[in-house]
């Protein structure tokens, strides 16, 4: 029942293409400057300083800069924590003791991540922290092992790709290290969940997740937010996130 797959290889390639195209565009822009015909409007997406976008009423704006990225992480951790809280509360049919242990561990980790971000943001940016989000898991059949583990895999792989994609925009070395401490735990989860779905295969780090250079996904926040929005009733806006 997972309708929104995250960042397939194709979208990843599109991302690389867009980077390439932007670089090529900047080069052409440089050329154009030299001959005096630069069209400023076309540069809008690449400006470092953007006018903050005001979100529509009822939309939660994640904000900008490092605080925006922390809010982004906090939103994803809220989603993951709520999901595993439900999984542990209403175990799927036929769950084994070993699976219960793994899923309970993961729940604890995600709750800790959520509460950590809440505390950190409350301390660092009390006026900018996003509120608790209302989740929507109506599309997930929590009695079904396949549905629960499929959703878990989606959330974990999404988390890894999100942190990997956001890391280079973090300005504070302390925050970057914190993100690093968390993303590898998400990657451990992703592999553990995959191995429950298809044990003893290469799926813990499959060729659809890892590219031919041995690199995991790194996905832009806009793509991630679009993919997780169906599971969050609160409308999220990442329009002001660094990108």
């Amino acid at each position: 029942m997972i309708k929104n797959k995250i960042s397939t290889n194709d979208s990843e390639k599109d991302g690389q293409k867009s980077v390439l195209n932007r670089r090529l565009f900047l080069r052409s822009a440089g050329v154009a400057t030299a001959v005096g015909t630069l069209a400023l409007g076309a540069c809008k997406d690449d400006d470092d300083t953007v006018t903050p976008t005001t979100p529509a009423t009822g939309t939660v704006d994640l904000g900008s800069g490092d605080v925006g990225i922390l809010n982004y992480a906090y939103a994803l951790e809220q989603l993951e924590a709520a999901f595993y809280e439900q999984v542990v509360k209403t175990p799927y049919t036929g769950i084994t003791a070993a699976e219960t242990t793994i899923l309970t561990d993961i729940r604890d980790h995600e709750v800790i991540h959520r509460e950590f971000f809440k505390a950190a943001l409350t301390a660092a940016a009390p006026t900018q922290i996003i509120p608790g989000l209302e989740v929507d898991f109506s599309k997930i059949d929590f009695t079904s092992r396949a549905a629960v583990l499929g959703a878990a895999k989606l959330f974990e792989d999404t988390g890894v790709a999100a942190y990997n994609g956001a890391g280079k925009f973090i300005k504070s070395a302390d925050y970057l290290l914190l993100a690093g401490k968390i993303v590898s735990v998400e990657a451990r989860h992703a592999a553990a969940i995959s191995d429950l779905i298809t044990p003893k295969t290469a799926d813990f780090a499959s060729d659809t997740q890892i590219d031919a250079n041995g690199l995991d996904k790194a996905t832009a926040s806009a793509t991630i937010l679009a993919a997780v929005q169906p599971y969050v009733k609160t409308k999220l806006s990442g329009a002001n996130l660094p990108k």
Partner: peptide, 16 residues
């Protein structure tokens, strides 16, 4: 970013 992309692959390996 490349380093981060390798980092999470190593974590997947460690997990399994």
């Amino acid at each position: 970013q490349y380093a981060l992309q390798v980092h999470s692959v190593e974590a997947r390996h460690a997990s399994i």
